[in-house]
Amino acid sequence: MQNALRYKNGKRSWGAGVRRHKYFYLMVLPMVLFYLIFAYVPMYGVVLAFKEFNYSLGILHSPWNQFQNFHEVFGSPDFKTAFNNTLLISFGRLLIEFPMPILLAILLNEMRSSGLKRIYQTVFTFPHFISWVVLSGIITSLLSDQGVLNQLLEAFGMGKNTILFNNGSFLGLLFASNIWKEAGWSAIIYLAAIAGINPELYEAASIDGANRFQQIKAITWPVLRNTAAILLILAVGGVMNGGFDQIFNLYNPAVYQRSDIIDTFVYRSAFTDATGFGFSTTVGLLKSVINFALLFGANFIVKHGLKEEGLY
């Protein structure tokens, strides 16, 4: 009877819709509160970028300071270094790290022994679940003065390595160790895309005489392209991030020159060097805005330039 009333004239009213979903609002409430408190309240806090922060006055009552923070940030040589490093490291990651999971997924897919394939996948995925705190402990121990690498080098009569303390090799270490940690994990999403391919396509192609490489090119790759495009957009939208967890746990003053990124710079300027919270907020805001703009830009290019399905 009630339903009949609600649907009269073939339309349900908005109020009835809300009432009908009352339990769903109850369910979504904790999540909404979480986002309001831990994401949107801090978002309001970016007004600090335009203020001189005073602890006793708080965010709300601290005085405005006429873009003073922006002048300071743009005048800071350390910011410039961090900005350039972030770009350099991120583009290095796009160039070197991004293709790895695709290659790995294609190779794993080409394996005929499913038992071995499973073992390999387990091995490659595992490091993803270990934190950078632990991984950097392992890495520094391997590369340390008494570490196994130096023992090997010594056994072959070569000099000691200084990978951790050398600006150039440290970047290589960042790329290599991130591939170690994440390539297997990221490959899962490509493997999922490959799993959707009809096996008959490969059979037909091989009857037509296509070799393995031709099959990859004609069947596997076209399926992976769209997944790759979406992940590329997301990666470009994170270019200003650069990988805080990894760098913060691995770097040392000897390699700040090349490895200090915006996030590590913000952390140090706020909590170690005490440059002022207004300054650090401004740097953070610039970073977020650039990321956001890049995300839109990348999506536009992928959608209209490459004619692929975009993110939205």
Partner: peptide, 19 residues
């Protein structure tokens, strides 16, 4: 609103002060 938080955040300092 949920999706938006994946791409834009207030940054470290406002987050720190909120908590």
């Amino acid at each position: 609103l949920v999706i938006f938080t994946m791409f834009f955040s207030g940054g470290l300092i406002p987050y720190y002060l909120t908590i």
